[in-house]
C-alpha cells in the first residue's frame, strides 16, 4: 500500500494534483468561513456561475480562459455588491440574473469561437488531475495573499461581517472592506474551478465550514478546522478516486459529506450521553 502510494506520488501530474488539493483546502477553508458566517452562499453560487461567462469571453478573445473568468467574476461580484446596496431590486432575484446571464454568455461565446471546442465538462465539474504548473502557481499566490490578508485584517473583517452598522458608527471604511471581500471571494472561486468545477465548487466553501461549526462557534477556529477537514476530504478523495478510477471532484465531495455526517452523528450521540 505504502509502495503503491509512493509510486503514484512520483507522477508529476499527481504531485500537482496533491499540491492543488492542499492549497484549495487552505484557501476555501478561510474564504468559506467568511461566506458561511455572513450567509453569502447564494451570492457565491451566483459569482461561480457568472464566471462561466468570463471563460467563454476568454476563449473568444484568444486569451487564457482563467484570466477572462477572473476579470469577469470580480466585476460581476462588485456589481452584485453595488446593486444589492441600492436595494431597489430584491437581492436574490438580482443574483439569479447575474447567474443566468453569465452562463448564457459563456455558452454563446464558446459557440462563436471558431474551430476549437473546449472540454466544457472540465470547467463544469473540474479535473484536479489536469491542473497546470502555471495554474498551480497562481493558486499558491492567491492562497498566500488571502491568508495574509485575513491574518492582518482579522478584526476589521470579523467586526464588519458581524455588525456592519456598528462598524459604520466607528467610522470604519465598511464599503471598501465589503468590496475587497467580495473580490476575494470571486478570485477564490475562479482559481478553485480547476479543482472542483463550477457546479461543485460551492461544496469546498460550505461543507467543511458547516462541519467545523458543529465543533466550535468561534470564527478563527471554524477557519482552522475547515482547513483540516478540507485537507482530509480533498486528499482522501483524490487518492480514492485514483484507486477506484472515478471522477476526482465528485469523490472529494462525497468524502466531505461523509465527514460531515460522521461528525454530526458522533456529536448528537455525545449530546445524548450528557
Amino acid at each position: 500500500m505504502t509502495l503503491i502510494f509512493l509510486e503514484i506520488l512520483s507522477y508529476r501530474f499527481f504531485q500537482h494534483a496533491l499540491a492543488a488539493a492542499v492549497l484549495t483546502s487552505v484557501l476555501c477553508g478561510i474564504v468559506g468561513t467568511y461566506i458561511v458566517s455572513r450567509r453569502m452562499v447564494f451570492i457565491s453560487g451566483g459569482i461561480t456561475h457568472t464566471s462561466f461567462g468570463g471563460i467563454g469571453i476568454g476563449y473568444y478573445l484568444g486569451m487564457p480562459p482563467m484570466i477572462g473568468a477572473a476579470v469577469f467574476s470580480v466585476l460581476s461580484a462588485l456589481g452584485i455588491e453595488y446593486f444589492s446596496r441600492k436595494g431597489d431590486i430584491r437581492n436574490d432575484s438580482m443574483i439569479a440574473i447575474f447567474w443566468a446571464l453569465g452562463m448564457a454568455l459563456g455558452i454563446l461565446f464558446i459557440f462563436l469561437t471558431p474551430g476549437y471546442a473546449p472540454n466544457l465538462m472540465s470547467y463544469l465539474f473540474g479535473n484536479i488531475l489536469t491542473i497546470s504548473l502555471v495554474e498551480l502557481l497562481a493558486l499558491a499566490c492567491l492562497t498566500v495573499i488571502i491568508a495574509a490578508a485575513f491574518k492582518l485584517f482579522y478584526r476589521p473583517i470579523l467586526y464588519v461581517a458581524f455588525d456592519e452598522e456598528f462598524a459604520r458608527t466607528r467610522l470604519i471604511p465598511v464599503q471598501l472592506i465589503k468590496y475587497l471581500m467580495i473580490s476575494m471571494i470571486a478570485l477564490t472561486i475562479v482559481f478553485s474551478i480547476r479543482v472542483a468545477g463550477i457546479i461543485l465548487i460551492i461544496s469546498l466553501l460550505t461543507i467543511p465550514q458547516t462541519t467545523a461549526n458543529l465543533l466550535t462557534r468561534r470564527f478563527d477556529r471554524i477557519a482552522l478546522f475547515s482547513i483540516l477537514i478540507g485537507l482530509a476530504g480533498n486528499i482522501g478523495g483524490l487518492i480514492l478516486s485514483y484507486y477506484l478510477n472515478i471522477p476526482s471532484g465528485a469523490t472529494i465531495i462525497l468524502c466531505l459529506v461523509m465527514l460531515f455526517l460522521a461528525v454530526r452523528t458522533i456529536r448528537s450521540w455525545k449530546l445524548l450521553q450528557t
Binding site: R155, P156, I172, N213, R218
Partner: peptide, 24 residues
C-alpha cells in the same frame, strides 16, 4: 438587528467597540 448564529465570542463583541477609523 444582527445574526445570532454568527460565530463571535462575547469578548470579541466588546473589543469590537475599540476599533475605529482607518487604523485597521
Amino acid at each position: 438587528h444582527f445574526d445570532p448564529k454568527f460565530p463571535i465570542t462575547a469578548m470579541e463583541v466588546v473589543l469590537s467597540g475599540i476599533m475605529a477609523g482607518n487604523r485597521l
